[in-house]
Amino acid sequence: MELIITSYCKIKRNTIYLEGNKIISSNSENPSYFFAEAYKTLELNYPKFHKMDMLSKLGFLATETLLSIPKAFGTEFLLRNNLNQISIILSNHSSSLDTDRIYQKSISNKDQYLPSPATFVYTLPNIVIGEIAIKHKITGENAFFVSEKFDAELLVNYTQELFKEANTNAAICGWVDYDDANYEAFIYLVEKATDSIKNANFKALNQTLLNQLFL
């Protein structure tokens, strides 16, 4: 079975790249402002976005870039794959540590002891998977891996195994890391190379390609 990457998105240093092309760029050094600007530019109109922590916002923006620009591509991706057969496999280095620090601050002072359930729920890295799943009603397999660096071998092997098991027909995969205002997201879509989509300019999924696209 041949697997192909049908689209990919990268977010780093105040810039969003879709398939290598810069589509949104900002002078804002503050990630909160940049994410808010990007949300506006992408015309996402999804108020839940504002409640998310930074890790979820980052993963959400990258996925929405893939599925909303151009809208036709995202719509097709979601239509040609059953929503219960789309898997979401993400990874990062910092888990939810950035939000953990914010939550910890809220409980470190006994006189201003204000633990918030709305913050606590984001102290798990897989919540970003939940946010993406909820937006598009995607109910397939989930996994969140934590590794020192982007691990192309891990992601390729695991994705291939999932497709072999037949409950997976497409996957949203990649890296989404947010740590103390440093951030990087690389999300790509994997599908089977069927006749109908084979002839387009898609790339076969393999480690070398992933490492190239990640850079």
Binding site: L83, N84, I88, P117, V121, I127, I129, G130, E131, A133, I134, H136, K137, I138, T139, G140, E141, N142, A143, E165, N167
Partner: peptide, 10 residues
């Protein structure tokens, strides 16, 4: 197998 509710985060 795993699966997501795609319903609510908490």
């Amino acid at each position: 197998a795993s699966a997501n509710d795609a319903n609510h985060i908490s």
